[in-house]
Design a protein around this nucleic acid. Sequence first.
DNA 1: TCCTTTTCGTTGTAAAAACAACCGACTTGT
DNA 2: ACAAGTCGGTTGTTTTTACAACGAAAAGGA
Lengths: 219, 219
Amino acid sequence: MKKYIPILKNTQLFSGASDEDIEAMLGCLQAKLCTYEKGEYVLREGERVERLMMLVKGELHIQRDDYWGNRSIISMVGVGEMFGEAYAAPESGPLMNDVLAVEDSAVIFLDIGKLLTVCPNCCKFHAMAVKNLFFAISEKNRKLVRKLGYMSRRTTREKLIAYLSEEAKRQNSGSFSIPFNRQQLADFLSVDRSAMSNELCKLRDEGLIEFEKNRFRLL
Amino acid sequence: MKKYIPILKNTQLFSGASDEDIEAMLGCLQAKLCTYEKGEYVLREGERVERLMMLVKGELHIQRDDYWGNRSIISMVGVGEMFGEAYAAPESGPLMNDVLAVEDSAVIFLDIGKLLTVCPNCCKFHAMAVKNLFFAISEKNRKLVRKLGYMSRRTTREKLIAYLSEEAKRQNSGSFSIPFNRQQLADFLSVDRSAMSNELCKLRDEGLIEFEKNRFRLL
DNA sequence: TCCTTTTCGTTGTAAAAACAACCGACTTGT
DNA sequence: ACAAGTCGGTTGTTTTTACAACGAAAAGGA
């Protein structure tokens, strides 16, 4: 677990913590490390989780398949990001989504209850971590609202434009990469892949965008 | 402000607090009360807010109108619910949505920074409030994910079924009221009102649901 | 290298949604 | 009681999407 401390140091939760702080916290929060192979499920819809999870290696998708097999990618998780924090509350029901490893991945599980109740060991970093946790979850909240912004568009074209322009703004450049291939982008925006592919090409032919693979440029 | 203490007592943030606790917190968090008439905007997209807001009277919609005038209702806020908590973080950008009073309303503004930093006055209830705040925001998070669940359905019919069955589950009854009229429901699900009305009637004719005004029953 | 699999663009068709327009029932205010 | 406005259902037309099927290019494995 120790080898991941440099990564944890760059996470939002442990932002501002020293190596010693993190080691103390890992003990205090009963950290456990699990690894997953590409294609393996980290969590399944319907499971109950009470732990906060943090991705220290690989890449995950938070997703859900409906009755007819249509997949929706709710969000993706990169190294250093946490997930599952919304299910720490005691009244939170079972998990609503699957969590799938799309790369070989490693996840650290933390007991969030220990963080929220007054720590008997009184880690130095404790109070700061609570604040960090709050900021992290509120950022995730804004991210979900942003996504609702794309999703509430009526047409595939509008969804694409909304998503791409938001992504350009976020990455501070008209030229940027997205973390999805075509099928995944379609799943993320909840549209049909072929229709989306078609619309992308129309946008290109109209001179609005350029793209190659997962690299886009807005004109 | 005092007259709203009974309402505050039933909010998630102040859950478990005594009247005295609440009065102390209101002072500590520099509570301010504002009132709004039906149709008035509480907040506008692009504004910066750093305060946590709590609705103590009336009803609000968190919504957004796009360039072409299509309105999306992100969520509705009832008495005792809080909003704006996701914008308390210093890095949070400006507000992404409008907040509209759909009834005559009253809102209490709280300085959330005071809650997250150690309180100089050390209110007795302080630590509990932090925990409550975390649970509240994580519940809101789950609510957003649930809504993404409806929105990611491909057809109006599927969106309706997803929404209605979720609502039935949430209210523990096949017969329930929804807090929207038809136009608002359409805005909430981001579909066309007339198409939705049409689909609702089809569902009724097929014997899947019954409804009258905003009261529904699943069969 | 060769074979298999994945990815992406393309096309045609059927299904669904958006849009606009209209009507009747019901509210609200005067 | 009347006029104006709101709300919800209905219909027809146009636009858009979903779906299925195919082929070329690229990636990956043996």
